[in-house]
Design a protein around this nucleic acid. Sequence first.
DNA 1: CGCCAGATTGACACGGCTCAAGCGGTGTGG
DNA 2: CCACACCGCTTGAGCCGTGTCAATCTGGCG
Lengths: 274, 274
Amino acid sequence: MTQGGRDGYVPREKQLTDSRLWRSRQLGPADRDALADTVEGIRRVDAGFDFVHQDAPADRLHVVLDGWAARSKLTEDGQRYLPSVMVPGDLCDLDALLFDRLDYAVTALTKCTVAVLPRERLLALIASRPGIAAAFAWLGLAENAVLTEWSMSVGRRSAHERMAHLLCELMVRMTAAGRAEGHSFDLPLTQNHLADALGLTAVHVNRTLQALRASGLITVKDRRARIHDWPALSRMGGFRPDYLHLDAVDQEVELPLPAWRPDRCGAPVLAFST
Amino acid sequence: MTQGGRDGYVPREKQLTDSRLWRSRQLGPADRDALADTVEGIRRVDAGFDFVHQDAPADRLHVVLDGWAARSKLTEDGQRYLPSVMVPGDLCDLDALLFDRLDYAVTALTKCTVAVLPRERLLALIASRPGIAAAFAWLGLAENAVLTEWSMSVGRRSAHERMAHLLCELMVRMTAAGRAEGHSFDLPLTQNHLADALGLTAVHVNRTLQALRASGLITVKDRRARIHDWPALSRMGGFRPDYLHLDAVDQEVELPLPAWRPDRCGAPVLAFST
DNA sequence: CGCCAGATTGACACGGCTCAAGCGGTGTGG
DNA sequence: CCACACCGCTTGAGCCGTGTCAATCTGGCG
């Protein structure tokens, strides 16, 4: 998955406008201008190819402008695992800001358009503009929260719950990215991708999706996910959107989710005492 | 687990000296002085009690000076999960720097001594001292990497592999913290804790440990872990220390691990190509 | 002495994995 | 235009790693 594949390096444009970074509350207009100027170029990558390589020297960050990508790691015995999935607008490899090599690759799950930002210029911006520093810090910490929730899913939830949780998360993130229509969104992941993200088998993903459809919660068909019963789905997945920390996002888009507010999100808050 | 428990608030001292934060390469002497002055107080917490509460307003950070702690979350149906374990010297709740409430609690696994750092003072330091800002940024990204590896463990490795991996990680971190003697270290976690950290059952943890002992890899007895065959253990767990990013730590202590360098760490490096 | 938390063991159930076959769409080369 | 290959999806049968439940054992401590 690493070489081959059209990987055109289009001359510089500025199209960060739809990215999560761009929408950060912490940024002022001047910050946004500065960021836009940082874009070194735009790459187009075919589905299935890595545009960031594991263990290779890293000196630039990547923002998915269009398409889906994922971080990807291999276990010693060759199983693939996707510790995080990037939807359009997401920053792929924040760690490249400080680390010289990454311990994951970033794979294009679909044909992708990717903005490339040179590390040095970003570091300079961070040093000189508190707003930009704050935005990156926020993104980093939010990412930690998402990873934590992800790992709890994998560690403690059943296949059905995990799938429900992931679909809820993607629904909310796609909505926040302005890429959802009502209760449905484009889901270009194959069942293999889902399996690698959830720590399951493709076969089992298939059966799980069928079960969720059979209970009338969702349908996934023709690369499109539709959520028919959000309250039930979020309850099943134990999903509460807090950990996504979307409150740092300028939200022109109204979130059309019926159970958006925590107190309506299903799971009763457990008393946490002896 | 939340109230009760001795929770003494000792008057201010300065004992960050052994913390990972303190050892960060990015800090100069003046930075360290400034950090030491930030300590608001020292708390002593009994084993089993939370010293950081989930969903409560957060306005201070905590460093475990002595003892072990862990972040802890509950699923809707009441299962406990420990997304990360803190050994002496570790920072517990970096997110409190920016987020007003945390989506996890921090539980003392043993009797703990904890330094408390007020968020506002830290933010001021970060704004005025690039070294301190860099140290925190590094810690945040390193945490990111650890969470990622943790979640891959839980998602893709068998119980034996997971256990092996965790023991390797703890061995290295304890060594880096100057708290290991040769190939053994204090491991005050109960089998229940291990289960909650690994996404397993206490019963299964027990059998797994026995199996590892039977193959001569380790012994865990009287709260002490001894690693008898590091190469085999790290190979079994697919452990490579890179993701811990300990290179940012001033390492007076020589790491006594035989297989410290990546190329001797067991797992053959997979050719990462098509 | 009695209590309790943690560790241990056994018997059994079950969720998710493995292996294997078949199906439908789609791109490609003859 | 067909043949073929390939990929993703689907389905079935059987197995195995972990979970569940429950009992017992151990050591520390009031």
